[in-house]
Amino acid sequence: MADPEIKSYAPHHESQSAAVTESRPAKAVLMIVTFAFLGIFLLLPLIVVFNEAFAKGLGAYTEALTNPDTRSAIHLTLLVAAISVPLNVVFGISAAWAIAKFEFKGKAFLTTLIDLPFSVSPVISGLVYVLLFGAQGLLGAWLKAHGIVILFAVPGIVLATIFVTFPFVARELIPLMQEQGNGDEEAALSLGANGWQAFWYVTLPNVKWGLLYGVLLCNARAMGEFGAVSVVSGHIRGLTNTMPLHVEILYNEYNAAAAFAVASLLAGLALVTLVLKTLLEMRYGAEIAATRGH
């Protein structure tokens, strides 16, 4: 039963003893390896993307981005993210709440199920939707009879995206909520709060940074998803092409400059996500430490 104060003020990384500190050359080697690896596999490709995008000048770049098909792809990508991310926030919070705060049968199964999208190849998840909703699929005939179009249209793309991005929010929240336990909620209830108030005033603020990370990652993946969406979209230009699909089409048509121009937008999204995350950490670092600490 350690004093929580001591715990929360103890610096985590500076407490290493001399015994577990590496020697100078070992440190240098480790750092060189890490930076070289990151440089070659992450930074270099990023530079190439932007380099290629602007290879034919700024004019070609803006022209590629203002092309109607490209604009439609951007529009569709934003729409899909705008639908799937909020839904996954709701699903993620519910699932994390259920798993972290309740005891019930099949909990382990549910936890495994949440990880399923990570372990299944996205192409397979796309194919599942084809088997379900396709013309020859299980529900195909019924859907056709009722005039509902899912496959090769926006609903199919949204479904596939939700499937693939489902774990991000839940996975971020489950360990956090488990660690925090029920104590704060019990305190809120004992003070007269109803369930909704306890959630809104206590649970949500306690997990808000985790939730935000989850949303950022979820959003990045929702916009960048290729495999599953590729299977269900049908690649109809100007209609069902998301940005990643559009990049591929342009590239296959030997329109490298345009392909990389669109790719640079996606890469830019990744950078914005990172910068946002870093800024939040800098701005609210103390508060994040306080809510994640003790």
Partner: peptide, 27 residues
């Protein structure tokens, strides 16, 4: 309507001391 003090206090860490104390009245 019981006042419960938890073993590890369960103070709301994102709220100031004043907000913690006022919580029961605010809700």
């Amino acid at each position: 309507n019981v006042g419960f003090v938890f073993q590890h206090y369960a103070l709301f860490r994102h709220m100031t001391v004043a907000d913690n104390i006022g919580f029961g009245l605010k809700v």
